[in-house]
Simulated scan of single mutants.
Amino acid sequence: MTRTHLITGAGSGIGALVADLLHARGDELVLVARSAPRAAELGERYAGATTLVADLADPAAVEGLGAQLPDRLDSVVHAAGVVALGTVAELPVAAWTDQLSVNLVAPAVLTRGALPALRAARGTVVLVNSGSGLVAHPHWAAYAASKHGLKGLADALRGEEREHGVRVSSVYPGRTATPMQAEVHRQEGREYDDTAWIDPATVADAILHVLDLPADATISDLTVRPR
C-alpha cells in the first residue's frame, strides 16, 4: 500500500530532503506551503503531490487545513521553523509571537486536525525539534522556549495517542547546514562554513528511519549531534 505523508517545511533544508526521499520511493506527499507561489513551486518539484496553503504564523489559517487532509496519513513531519536571536531584555514581542506560532502553535493545531487520519493509518508524528529544545543558551530564549514547548507537546501527545496506535517522535538535530543555520550565523555576526555542521541529509535519513520503524517499537526521542 502506498504511504501518505504530510510535511511542513518542504521548501528547503531538512524538510525538502525528507520530501525528496519519500517522493523518490513513490510515497504520496501532502505539502504545506506558506503562499500560493510557493505551493506552485512545490507542485512542480514533486509531481503528483498535494499542496495546501497556510501561513504557519497564522493559527487560524492552519486550523482550516484540517478539512483538506486525506482520510489516512502514515505520518506528519513538522520540519518548518523560524529563528530570531536576541536577549530577553531586547527581543521584541513580534519575535516571540512569530517563533511560538510557527514552531509550537502551528504544529499543535495541524496535528490536531490530522489526528483522525493518523489514527486511521496508525501513523507517526515526527516533530523536528532542536538541541535548543533540550538546553537553552543566552540570546536563544524565544527560540528555545518554542522548542522546549514542542518537546512538551510531543510528550503529552505520545501518551494521549498511544491507545490509538499513533506514534510520536521528537528529533533533536544539533547545528545543521541548512539555510536556517546560515541565517543564524548572520544574526550572530559570524562567518558560515557549512562543512562544519551536520549534513541535513544525515538528519533526513534519521527521520526516515523513524518513519520506517517496524510496528513493534517506537523511538520517542532521537538526538543527532555534530561529530
Rank of each mutant, 00 (worst) to 15 (best):
L21A: 14
L21I: 08
L22C: 11
H23R: 11
H23N: 12
H23Y: 12
A24P: 15
A24I: 15
A24F: 13
A24V: 15
R25L: 14
R25G: 15
R25V: 15
R25W: 14
G26S: 10
G26D: 08
G26Y: 09
D27W: 13
V30K: 01
V30Y: 00
L31P: 04
L31H: 02
A33G: 05
A33S: 05
R34D: 05
R34W: 03
S35E: 02
S35D: 03
R38C: 07
A39F: 11
A39L: 10
A40W: 11
A40L: 14
E41Q: 15
L42F: 11
L42D: 07
L42I: 12
E44Q: 14
R45L: 13
Y46W: 12
Y46V: 10
Y46G: 09
Y46L: 11
Y46T: 09
G48Y: 09
G48H: 08
A49V: 12
A49C: 14
T50R: 14
T50S: 13
L52R: 08
L52H: 06
L52C: 08
L52Y: 03
V53W: 08
A54I: 02
D55A: 09
D55I: 05
L56C: 07
L56G: 05
L56A: 04
A57C: 09
A57K: 05
D58S: 11
P59R: 01
A60T: 11
A60S: 11
A61G: 14
A61Q: 14
A61I: 10
V62F: 04
V62P: 08
E63F: 05
E63I: 07
E63Y: 05
E63R: 15
G64I: 04
L65F: 07
G66R: 07
A67S: 13
A67E: 14
Q68Y: 07
Q68W: 06
Q68N: 10
L69P: 03
L69M: 11
L69A: 08
P70E: 09
P70K: 02
D71W: 08
D71R: 12
R72I: 04
L73K: 05
L73H: 04
L73W: 03
D74P: 12
D74K: 06
S75K: 06
V76I: 05
V77N: 00
V77A: 01
H78P: 05
H78F: 03
A79R: 04
G81L: 01
G81V: 01
G81Y: 00
V82P: 06
V82K: 01
V82M: 00
V82I: 05
A84G: 05
G86Q: 04
A89Q: 14
A89W: 11
E90F: 10
L91F: 12
L91R: 14
P92V: 00
P92E: 04
V93T: 12
A94F: 07
A94P: 13
A95I: 09
A95P: 14
W96E: 00
T97E: 11
T97P: 13
D98W: 07
D98L: 13
Q99W: 09
L100D: 02
S101H: 09
V102N: 06
L104V: 06
L104R: 01
L104Q: 03
V105T: 11
V105W: 02
A106G: 06
P107M: 01
A108M: 10
V109F: 01
V109L: 04
V109I: 06
L110D: 02
T111S: 02
T111F: 00
G113Q: 02
G113S: 03
A114K: 00
A114T: 00
L115P: 04
